[in-house]
């Protein structure tokens, strides 16, 4: 009765990425939206704040790499984790397949973002 097949879950890895992404979603993503999608388009900040030269300089630097991590990569893992568990709750698809697609997508898009960064600094 007690000694069932005992296998460690790999969920801690996805849960850790989900948690880190959650913090980013709560702290950094709203800040990014505030500046890029609200303050600048509304003219509350001068348009030159993020002109081409300035934003290129900001993005393709070490702080830019961190920006990509906290605004794109980690939130991607957070969102895909929610989607995967949402699908499980709605009994849609098989969890193993959903897992590969969800985290696979998060990994692919994170790598694309990092590839863009590498191309930019070269």
């Amino acid at each position: 009765m007690m000694e069932k097949r005992v296998k460690r879950s790999d969920e801690p890895i996805w849960w850790a990425l989900f948690s880190a992404g959650g913090v980013c979603f709560a702290v950094f993503v709203p800040a990014a939206i505030l500046f890029i999608a609200l303050l600048i388009p509304l003219g509350l900040l001068p348009a030159e704040t993020l002109d081409f030269e300035r934003s290129r300089g900001l993005l393709f630097s070490f702080p830019g790499l961190i920006f990509i991590g906290v605004v794109i990569c980690l939130p991607l893992f957070h969102a895909m984790h929610r989607i995967r568990h949402g699908l499980h709750d709605l009994k849609l698809g098989r969890d193993k397949t959903n897992k590969v697609i969800a985290y696979g997508a998060a990994i692919v898009f994170s790598l694309l973002a990092l590839l863009g960064f590498v191309l930019g600094i070269m």
Binding site: V6, R8, S9, P12
Partner: peptide
């Protein structure tokens, strides 16, 4: 912890 670490341990909780 062996039981908690299982998929059907803490990790099924959402």
């Amino acid at each position: 912890m062996v039981q908690l670490n299982r998929e059907e341990g803490v990790w099924t909780c959402t």
